[in-house]
Amino acid sequence: MSFTPNIQAFCCHYTSQQTIAEGKEGLKRDGMPENVTLNRLVCGGKLQVSTLLKAFEDGADGVYFVGCPPDECHNVKGSQRAAKKVAAVRQALIELSVEPERVEMFHLERGFHPEFVKAAQVMNKRITALGPCPFKGDSK
């Protein structure tokens, strides 16, 4: 049975600026998987552990964050903080015996880069292979 994962991408204002400007059609042309939903934050420093967990509660099969390179955050340490939050969720998934690869952190240069789309494709491929998230009601 075919499976299209629900993937929630969180990204900071700066790394997603040009991506957002591309618009839905433009992103589709660039190869952005349509099942990846972008959630934009002002900065990685605003990311909360609960935001990522909530995404899983709301039915995500995979969740990731795209932030600036660790030492190039516009707000100095935002993407470093985001990486810590992602690591905390990864640890929580391990505790709950769920594949930690369902959550990921990407550090990318600002602006629109093929890497932004590539990150979405990597996650889409990975989560498709993993199958539905065990947090979904019908699976044990």
Binding site: Q48, V49, S50, L53, K54, F56, E57, A92, L96, S97, V98, P134, F135, K136, G137, K140
Partner: peptide, 19 residues
Amino acid sequence: EREVEILASLIRLGMKKQG
């Protein structure tokens, strides 16, 4: 408050996983 939000979420997810 923040940790309550996180733990509540983890409990919901953990229980859901157990069906």
